[in-house]
Design a binder for these strands. Structure first.
Length: 679
DNA sequence: GTAGGGTTAG
């Protein structure tokens, strides 16, 4: 008795000071010798100390030997198992405790319910919760929050809300459980509501919850909610650190609010690489190419070394406008600083291919050590946009041989590649293989490719039959493919049905209306042309102005149609007039049917000469040395007459001219185009 | 003798 009084407290401190098994063992021996062990003093501490130094088996042995075990000893064992990541043992001890008639307390319930959550054993959890209520712990905040967490983990948010509303006291853990629960099951709006309510009740905002919310908003794309949460942060002077602000930048970028992202970014007092990269990749992914590249340069001026994400963003941006010089310099930078893995390698393949160099793309592909599905798909798609159908096909065969399973994207790229090369038989054959051998259900995209393939080859009836046999409802892409085939082959009768279907589907894209208008113009149906114009006007659509860009000496130059604003416009026109004469001398005849308007022939010819791609070509010819390969990037399909003219220009100036239009690449050389006029 | 919730962000 005396010993207990003297040593009880010291014993506890002694045990707390122990750092390993040997030290605990000494104290343990002391306890046995002094008789305190059998008295029950500090035995719970002994159990928890053994567990704390990782000796859970020892703890259990001691626990099993204890003659009388009060609730604190049981809890020590329960907590030990919980900390040891053994939730099923927690439940076993809890059950044993109940069998021996020991009344659990708040922490026994709390930790046991947590264990059920970990085990996803919600039935047991409910049972323990029922017992807790019976034992008078129904209003306990610790027990309650563990139940809230259990409900939110299994998506029972309505049950969670019911309990939450009945709780007499709620702390930040309870609010957090509710908010993250709603976030995790995608009910972001309710998550925000709970968050706002928490603020109204004067609860201190928790930045971890805030981060979770912002991320959830970024993924659901609810712009209005995103702005309101941001507004809330500002109005309530919630302190924002670099992580929160970067998440806001990312959120705005993901919901397409680049202006807001930029503003948050500029107001950040401390930026790091992640902040820069977030905005760069946001710009790149939303097509704001020059913003992305300017920011990429700026970050380096400020002394930040670009990392993987910013590099991927810059590569994506470079590839969108054919900035091969910039792309190459990034490649050099990457080689000096990072290992080229599948992700970077794939981005580089894509960049080189889209910057016109299919051979560099392949060299990159060849150097990636362990090529995965995505690498193959990127290379196959690259071959496709360059019209190398056979190479795409042999790559698909190669990947099958090396046991990489092609997916729906592989076949979509393959079919598109075969289509751009006019390989009709192969297309039909591989479509069958895809369905029968690889068990891939053809989607609209695959059908559209095959129909495109047939229609491009002039097999309009076969394309029509395929549409009739489709298992899914033919959509816009399918009818557009048929329509453009009919347009190219002047199959006006078949085309009219396709045109009608296209119009029925009420597309929201001005490019498609341009196709319709072009089709009717080619058919000489000027009434329909003006009808289309009316629809476009009613819908508030404008024909996307054609523009072309060309990189000359590392600088990007953009041209609009009839772009007289350019400082070298006079020289450009002079060169085009000179070329026009030489072209006509070797057989060029302007294809005025490509001019939409119902105008005089001579005016049409002049308009053709002013197409943006021609201005860009002339400009590039004027400003580069003889023999330099040119790369022009156009935002629309290249016009049929310009296509013809560029062939002649390639003869006259003895240059390789690469034109990338919105669909694919055209390599003009010695009077021929790589697309073989399948386009 | 203690407990309930998550770690950063692209």
């Amino acid at each position: 008795m005396l010993l207990k009084r003297y040593f009880g407290k010291d014993l506890k401190n002694l045990l707390l000071a122990c750092n390993d098994r040997a030290q605990i063992f000494e104290v343990h021996a002391l306890m046995i010798l002094s008789g305190l062990f059998s008295y029950g003093t500090s035995t719970a501490q002994l159990v928890s100390s053994y567990a704390r130094v990782g000796e859970i088996e020892f703890a259990r042995k001691v626990f099993d030997k204890l003659p009388k075990r009060r609730v604190n000893v049981w809890n020590a064992m329960i907590v030990a198992y919980s900390r040891n990541d053994s939730p099923s043992e927690v439940i076993n001890v809890y059950k044993q405790m109940r069998c021996e008639g020991v009344k659990p307390d708040s922490s026994s319930f709390t930790v046991s319910i947590k264990a059920c959550t970990r085990l996803l054993d919600f039935e047991m959890g409910e049972e323990i919760w029922k017992t807790a209520v019976e034992c008078g712990y129904g209003n306990d905040i610790f027990v309650g929050s563990s139940v809230l967490n259990m409900y939110s983990k299994c998506g029972k948010m309505d049950e969670a809300m019911g309990l939450f509303e009945k709780m007499p006291r709620r702390d930040v853990v309870c609010w957090t459980a509710m908010i993250t629960g709603f976030v995790q099951c995608g009910r972001v709006r309710e998550a925000v509501d709970v968050y706002c309510q928490m603020q109204r009740e004067g609860m201190e905002g928790d930045r971890v919850v805030m981060l979770g919310l912002i991320q959830a908003l970024a993924n659901t794309g609810e712009a209005k909610l995103g702005r309101s949460v941001h507004g809330y942060l500002i109005r309530n002077d919630v302190p924002m650190d670099v992580v929160i602000q970067t998440s806001l930048v990312d959120m705005y970028a993901k919901i397409g609010e680049l202006e807001f992202a930029y503003r948050v970014f500029r107001q950040m007092p401390n930026k790091n690489v992640i902040s820069w990269s977030a905005l760069i990749s946001g710009y790149a992914q939303n097509g704001f190419v020059s913003n992305a590249l300017e920011l990429f340069a700026e970050m380096q001026r400020y002394g930040f070394q670009p990392d993987l994400v910013s590099i991927l963003g810059a590569l994506l941006a470079s590839s969108q406008v054919g900035r091969s010089r910039l792309g190459k310099s990034i490649h050099g930078y990457v080689m000096r600083r990072l290992d080229i893995d599948q992700v970077l390698g794939t981005a580089l393949i894509d960049m080189y291919a889209k910057c016109g160099s299919i051979s560099c793309a392949y060299a990159m592909f060849d150097r990636i050590p362990c090529k995965d599905l995505i690498c193959f798909n990127a290379m196959i798609a690259s071959y496709g946009i360059h019209g190398h159908g056979k190479e795409a096909l042999s790559l698909v065969i190669q990947m099958i041989e090396s046991n990489i399973k092609p997916d729906h994207a592989t076949f979509a790229s393959l079919l598109s590649a075969l289509s751009h090369s006019g390989l009709v038989k192969e297309g039909q054959y591989w479509f069958d293989i895809m369905v029968k051998e690889h068990k891939i259900q053809p989607g609209e995209k695959h059908y559209a490719c095959l129909i495109d393939l047939l229609a491009r080859a002039g097999k309009v009836e076969e394309a029509q039959n395929l549409i009739n046999s489709m298992t899914c409802e033919p959509g816009l892409a399918v009818w557009v493919a048929l329509l453009s085939g009919c347009h190219n082959y002047k199959r006006f009768l078949n085309g009219e049905l396709a045109a009608k279907k296209v119009m029925e589907l009420n597309p929201d894209n001005s490019g498609i209306y341009s196709l319709l208008a072009n089709f009717f113009a080619a058919a000489g149906k000027w009434n329909e042309v003006s009808e289309i114009r009316k629809i476009m006007k009613r819908k508030g659509m404008k024909k996307t102005p054609g523009h072309s860009v060309v990189e000359v000496n590392g600088q990007l130059h953009a041209f609009l149609m009839e772009d007289k604003s350019h400082p070298q416009y006079e020289q450009i026109v002079k060169l085009l007039e000179k070329l026009d004469k030489e072209m006509r001398a070797i057989g060029y005849v302007p294809k005025t049917e490509f001019v939409l308007h119902n105008l005089e022939e001579e005016v049409k010819v002049r308009m053709l000469c002013n197409h943006s791609e021609r201005l860009a070509i002339a400009f590039a010819l004027l400003n580069t040395g003889p023999g330099t390969k040119l790369l022009i990037t156009k935002n629309l399909r290249v016009c049929g007459d310009c296509h013809e003219a560029t062939k002649f220009i390639s003869i006259i100036v003895k240059r390789e001219i690469v034109v990338r239009d919105v669909k694919r690449f055209h390599h003009f050389k010695d009077g021929l185009c790589s697309c073989g006029d399948y386009w």
